[in-house]
Design a protein around this nucleic acid. Structure first.
Length: 570
RNA sequence: UGGGGUGUAGCCAAGCGGUAAGGCACGGGACUUUGACUCCCGCAUCCCAGGUUCGAUUCCUGGCACCCCAGCCA
């Protein structure tokens, strides 16, 4: 059976307009882009895996690069803090961006590529009297910063002569001092109502080897400084980031203005994505991984791109989702149902159909010869003949879904019940005649029935209506499998962000593993990553880590919409 | 209590002074060899109060609510 290829997918979708694109249009119309082309960048910190919030930013930045003439988007690793960043994450991040369908071409960058330039800019700041080496302790800096309502106090080192600061800064770089002994600060305004402008630290001593620059540096630049100047160096025109950086913009602009950067980039902020029944901060996700609440960053319940890929989400579903949630400055929490809808829509046309029984109940067709086998032909997609057909072996004993039988059914239950006739999909019409019970518990362990021999293929010979159609797998030819049913990670729509409370908020039903499922034989030996619709159940993907042809493991990507179940649930 | 933001349906979100797009969710119906898919139908006067205007969700004034900021994190 053919499998869906998940390793590559272009991103041809064009994104809807939004306020950022409108700003860019206005800048272009006003002739503000010196090179005439828009340049954006996606600047992840390599300290964890990318999540769907990053996908929003990726689609924004790379989408603009795709849609504007001659525009480009740089993939720039913001690797300014070697104490918490790892090269491993860089590789995974690149995979995720590629899988999402975007291509940075030869525009792979690192903030660390600019450490020499950044060092030069810092020296210029010192020379021009706009920065100084401060020798206060971390605690002293904190206490002299003031509060939200009180101004801070000037550092006693604030008026240190530039020559002295220059000398100290050089020696900081040379590794002469302990961490925390000195720090380089911008000289702005300790009384600013914007705390970010109260002489922010721009370089700190850190004796940590960097994944790319090794032991060359003993000082590393802080975010605001590195970000503004990396953007400037790359001639980024529009630096798009999330809302929490809005009050950093005056500082961003201060660096560019003070260093007299021509045609400075413009920072525009948008709101981050929140999803119901999930958490999106890297801090909390890291906590889930490190505390073992999930199996890792690629756990299919994680809102990480890698987790969603393993869950079976097609990349186009994520792109579609990002297009549909829009782009604004409003705090938001998007319902998980929207994502699920995008996933279903993306899977529906591409997923070959198959039959799999998750909780088997044996059905013996008493008037079907014991050693007979019939091969029935079934389409792989009811609405798309181009996906071809497959053969289903039928035998006297088949498994049906336990839920598809009820001894005492409610009205409009179009499934098996004593005396009821139901269609076995693509096979025969079967009437349930009897049940077999466990003599001890009384539980129904098998049902019996007779088929209408003239209904081969499932068509009633006399035109009688048979409402119910049920999926099945031959007991003799079915393939046992392990199936993992995934559901929302958190019960609450908005889980408490307290890390200590996180584990207790996990939905116990977020993962249910079933070991004795029975798959139709065509599902044996499919490759990891292959996506199917198990009819009447959901979309399932062969797990990329644990699936093997001899011991199949499938993950439920998302269930089918279930109007009947929903109605009954209420 | 300082600064920066945001307020259009249950959730997203268009709207840019001319009389409330769209999607998801929800409810109803059609079709159906997946109670799937698909298709129809229904579903808001725009945080509040004043003002300007022939006309305001859009402009002005004043409130209210919520979010972010006091890392040598990003």
């Amino acid at each position: 059976m053919s499998a869906v290829d998940f390793t590559s997918s272009k991103a041809p979708d064009s994104a809807p307009s939004n306020f950022i694109r409108q700003e860019i249009d206005a800048d272009i119309a006003a002739g503000k882009l010196p090179q005439g082309a828009v340049i954006t960048r996606f600047p992840p910190e390599p300290n964890g895996y990318l999540h769907i919030g990053h996908a929003k930013s990726i689609c924004l930045n790379f989408g603009i690069a795709r849609d504007y003439p001659n525009a480009r988007c740089h993939l720039r690793f913001d690797d300014t803090n070697p104490s918490r960043e790892r090269a491993h994450f860089m590789e995974r991040i690149k995979e995720d961006v590629r899988w999402l369908g975007f291509d940075w071409g030869d525009r792979l960058r690192h903030a660390s590529d600019y450490f020499d330039d950044l060092y030069g800019y810092a020296k210029r700041l010192i020379e021009s009297g706009h920065a100084y080496v401060c020798s206060l302790s971390q605690e002293e800096i904190r206490s002299s910063r003031g509060t939200l309502t009180e101004a801070g106090r000037d550092s006693p080192w604030r008026d240190r002569p530039p020559e002295q600061s220059l000398d100290l800064f050089r020696r900081m770089c040379a590794g002469e001092f302990e961490e925390g002994a000195h720090v380089l600060r911008a000289k702005i305004d300790m009384a600013s109502p914007n705390i970010n402008l109260r002489d922010p630290v721009i370089y700190r001593i850190m004796h940590a080897p960097h994944p790319l620059t090794g032991r060359k540096w003993s000082v590393y630049p802080m975010y605001d400084f590195a970000q503004a100047l990396s953007d400037a160096i790359e001639r980024v025109t529009h630096s798009l980031c999330t809302l929490e950086f809005e009050d950093h913009r005056p500082l961003y602009d201060w660096f560019l203005r003070t260093l007299e950067i021509p045609s400075p980039p413009r920072q525009i902020e948008f709101s981050r994505l929140n999803l119901t029944h999930s958490v999106m901060s890297k801090r909390l996700l890291t906590h889930l991984v490190e505390q073992g609440h999930v199996s890792g960053w690629t756990d299919p319940r994680m809102p990480t791109i890698a987790g969603m890929r393993r869950r079976g989400f097609p990349p186009e579903a994520l792109r579609d989702f990002c297009a549909r949630i829009g782009m604004t400055k409003k705090d938001n929490i998007v319902e998980l149902e929207l994502l699920e809808n995008c996933v279903r829509e993306a899977c529906e046309p591409i997923a070959p159909r198959a039959m799999a029984v998750l909780r088997p109940l044996r059905l013996v067709i008493e008037n079907f010869p014991p050693d007979r086998r019939e091969d029935l032909v079934a389409p792989n997609h009811p609405n798309d003949p181009s996906l071809g057909t497959r053969e289903l072996p039928f035998t006297r004993e088949v498994f049906i879904e336990r839920d598809d039988f009820m001894e005492d059914p409610p009205a409009k239950f179009h499934r098996f019940a004593p005396g009821k006739e139901v269609r076995l999909r693509y096979a025969w019409l079967v009437t349930c005649t009897d049940v077999v019970r466990d003599p001890k518990t009384g539980e129904v362990v098998e049902i019996r029935g007779i088929h209408d021999p003239d209904s081969r293929g499932g068509n009633s010979p006399d035109g009688r209506k048979v409402r119910g159609t049920v999926h099945w797998v031959s007991a003799r030819f079915g393939v046992p499998a392990r199936v993992r049913l995934y559901d929302r990670l958190f019960h609450e729509a908005a889980p408490s962000p307290d890390p200590q409370a996180l584990g207790g908020q996990i939905n116990p039903a977020s993962l249910e593993e079933i070991d004795d499922c029975i798959l139709e034989p065509s599902l044996a030996r499919v490759p990891p990553g292959a996506l199917f619709q198990f009819e009447r159940s959901g979309y399932f993907v062969a797990d990329s880590e644990d699936h093997a042809p001899d011991s199949p493991v499938f993950n439920r990507t998302v269930s089918l919409r279930d109007t009947w179940g929903r109605k009954r649930g209420r």
